[in-house]
Write a protein that binds this DNA or RNA. Structure first.
Length: 461
DNA sequence: GAGTGATCATGG
DNA sequence: CCATGATCACTC
């Protein structure tokens, strides 16, 4: 089976696959084994493409690359991207002689036919094609992809291919690929071997933050506003500086003044972070999220804090996660909590008292964007493991007599804010009857929180 | 004043 | 309705 498609035929074929399961595509053939099995099946049975690692696009005459992208259900049962999408292996020797416009990577990124399927963990054969989308690299995606590619090229030129890491880049990562346990002597050589001769094999991959955004655009049409429509940035740094610049024009102004200027009625409540950001950037459609904020993976947080020293009045909560899940998480970098740590845009709101005040006495502080560094993640990992281990091995819950209405509160031995530097765990339910039923011990729903002193450090710069 | 469990209130 | 961002009410 080997088809030669026109673009129309190709898209018609993609459309035909919608709703089909892997089982259906395979007819009675045997299920492939190993990594990427479902991707291979869809490419082969759906489009007649044999598993290959050619550098040309899958449909050379159309310049179209085919990518099969797995989706999974998130905690709210919505479909979201499961993992990164590999684009092409990196040849360190060639990379330093390439230019972005004619590069191997861009050649593959120009036109991609994405086939989205829902991965069925219980029975992979029941995984089902959900949708397709022909991606054209345009001006709204190119700057971030290009500046990531350039950054990686620069590192390789400097003879630092061995210290590349996924987190250096924003949307197009140089991620590890190939056999995991090869000895260093079997790694490919890098140019400029002043520091080290060999470097681990890596591939350019689209990060989940990029494909998540793409999926969002495909699935919820016209749902995103684009910052690039207001300001033409050329790299992530320029973009982040622009965002901060627009926000920090208002530093020192009260949020009442800010609200009045932007004609916002309500500046309080849980949507205030989005209001402030969107308004400062000149967007007024409340329904739409910002494409670049999603691509950068930034969580936007307002931080009420003390005017004198930026000490937050409250810790910052993360979503509730059943303890029964946490105790089964072995690796921090594969944990749910880790996925929340991509990046943050903190918007400090300064006030003198802890109690909520009139909006004319609350002023905007200096906003900060923070991406956790490798070292910071290691520190956080230690505390995450400490907390997980207590829940896993030695969780205890008891009642303590008090003067409140009920006459007692529920206590537990999970590390709290005074036991840690970065994160702690604390109740986070509707009330004290809102119990976590994922675990035998009767305990109120809990969640991770950032410690106040840690947030203070981050927003103090 | 900081830390802690509980609870409110909003928005999806 | 329920998860969750915000913050309250109490203790140490």
């Amino acid at each position: 089976m080997n088809f030669s498609f026109t673009l129309e035929e190709l898209l018609r074929q993609a459309k035909k696959l919608k709703g089909k399961t892997v089982d259906f595509l395979l007819k009675h053939k045997e299920f492939d084994s190993g990594k990427g099995a479902i991707g291979n099946i869809i490419e082969r049975e759906g489009f007649g493409i044999a598993n290959n690692n050619e550098s040309r696009p899958d449909f050379p005459e159309l310049g179209v690359e085919l990518k099969v992208l797995p989706l999974k259900r998130d905690t709210k049962n919505r479909l979201t991207v499961k993992e990164r999408t590999k684009i092409c292996s990196i040849n360190y020797m060639n990379l330093i002689n390439e230019k972005w416009v004619s590069s191997h990577a861009k050649n593959k990124l120009n036109k991609i036919l994405f086939i989205f399927y829902e991965y069925n963990q219980k029975n992979p054969r029941h995984s089902k094609v959900i949708d397709y989308y022909l991606f054209n690299l345009d001006e709204s995606d190119e700057p971030l992809l290009k500046s990531d590619w350039e950054r990686t090229k620069r590192e390789v030129e400097l003879g630092r291919a061995h210290s590349l890491s996924e987190s250096q880049n924003v949307v197009l990562a140089a991620s590890r690929s190939g056999a995991g346990k090869l000895p260093e002597s079997k790694w490919p050589e890098q140019p400029n071997q002043r520091i080290q001769k060999n470097a681990r094999q890596r591939a350019f991959s689209l990060k989940p933050s990029f494909t998540k955004t793409l999926w969002h655009e495909v699935h919820y049409k016209n749902s995103l506003d684009k910052i690039i429509d207001k300001y033409k940035y050329s790299d992530a740094e320029g973009l982040e500086n622009y965002i901060l610049g627009q926000l920090n024009k208002w530093q020192g102004q009260s949020i009442a003044e800010f609200a009045k200027h932007h004609n916002i009625k309500k500046m309080t409540g849980k949507a205030s972070n989005a209001f402030i950001l969107r308004s400062a950037l000149g967007f007024f459609d409340k329904k739409k999220q910002l494409k670049e904020i999603m691509q950068l993976g930034l969580s936007v947080k307002t931080v009420p804090c003390r005017s004198s020293d930026l000490f937050p009045w409250e810790s910052m909560s993360f979503p509730y996660q059943p303890l029964g899940e946490i105790i089964n998480e072995d690796r921090f970098d594969e944990s749910e909590f880790y996925t929340y740590l991509q990046g943050f845009l903190f918007i400090p709101l300064l006030r003198d008292k802890r109690e909520k005040q009139n909006s004319s006495t609350i002023t905007l502080g200096k906003s900060v964007i923070w991406h956790p560094t490798h070292d910071e993640l290691e520190d956080i990992q230690e505390e995450w493991e400490q907390i997980r281990n207590v829940i896993r091995d030695d969780l205890r819950v008891w009642k303590k007599v008090t003067n409140n209405k009920k006459g007692f509160v529920q206590k537990n031995n999970i590390p709290g804010e005074s036991d840690t530097k970065y994160i702690h765990m604390r109740p986070h339910g509707r009330d004290s009857n809102d119990l976590d039923d994922s675990i035998k011990v009767k305990i109120t729903k809990q969640s991770f929180w950032f410690n106040k002193s840690f947030i203070q450090k981050l927003i103090s710069g």
